[in-house]
């Protein structure tokens, strides 16, 4: 790093790295554009039935016409539910993991329950949730929480319990309290695990929200997808799926930003 005069070889190497990166991005764009173009052409030539497969230009039209299908409103609903489910699921998961780290006894007691709950397909609990908390936004958020919380607990607890024993010993030599151990060693040492949990939870809370919307069927992209499928509005279904992809991408970007901020 000290050497500011970059050598020829170094320049060559850096150029090569840059070129390689560019090539990858170009190929990715090419694949995407090619796929859309072929889709569009095949649909135009009636090789595939655009009634069943939809078609990029029609998706774009639907997308541009956000108001006609209340797309914007439905997107807002889904984003709101996902954010709330994601936030609460993560907070709850971390809180439970901390409690279980604190009490080895509780951790041992809850182990089999957590394992079973983790393998259980949470969607199967959907109807029960709707009966318990009512058929509305809260049921959908409950689904999102349910799906993300158990994984978060297991991941975070695993990280906490695996905190470097030598470092814990070092902290103990200063006679640190358990609370200090938690806040000054265990939690900061597991920031990486936490970021990973966030990344995983974006996907999981979206699964929770969409399957919740399937079941509740009142609003949201999940509702649009079910509705569009039933009335054979494939343009609407495809557009909703694409918006979902964009939402997921933006949230992921948000977590990456957070990660950069924390690890600056």
């Amino acid at each position: 790093m000290k050497n500011n005069g970059i050598s020829k070889e170094r320049k060559k190497y850096l150029n090569k790295v840059k070129k390689n990166k560019l090539l990858i991005i170009l190929t990715q764009i090419l694949i995407l554009v090619g796929f859309l173009a072929i889709w569009e052409i095949l649909a135009n030539k009636d090789v595939i039935d655009s009634f069943i497969t939809s078609q990029p230009s029609r998706i774009l039209k639907t997308f541009m016409n956000l108001k006609s299908n209340d797309l914007l409103m439905h997107t807002k609903v889904t984003v709101y539910e996902t954010l709330v489910g994601f936030g609460l699921g993560t907070i709850l998961g971390v809180a439970i993991a901390i409690i279980l780290w604190w009490s080895k006894f509780l951790a041992k007691v809850s182990e089999p329950f957590l394992v079973v709950l983790n393998s259980l397909p949470k969607v199967a609990l959907g109807p029960i949730i709707i009966i318990w908390v009512g058929s509305g936004t809260s049921a959908i958020i409950a689904m999102a929480i349910l799906i993300s919380v158990i994984v978060t607990v297991l991941e975070m607890l695993n990280g906490y319990l695996k905190t470097d024993k030598e470092i814990i010993k070092m902290a103990r030599t200063f006679n640190c309290t358990k609370l200090q151990l938690l806040t000054k060693i265990v939690i900061p040492a597991n920031i990486g695990t936490f970021i990973n949990s966030l990344k995983v939870n974006i996907g999981l809370s979206l699964v929770g929200v969409i399957s919740g919307e399937f079941l509740v069927s009142k609003a949201g992209l999940g509702y649009l997808i079910v509705y569009g499928g039933q009335v054979f509005k494939l343009d609407l279904v495809m557009t909703s799926v694409i918006i979902l992809g964009i939402v997921a991408g933006i949230m992921y970007g948000g977590v990456l930003l957070l990660e950069k901020f924390i690890r600056k």
Partner: peptide
Amino acid sequence: YMLQRDCLLEW
């Protein structure tokens, strides 16, 4: 007490 590893906190 000083241990075998320096146990510095990387963060």
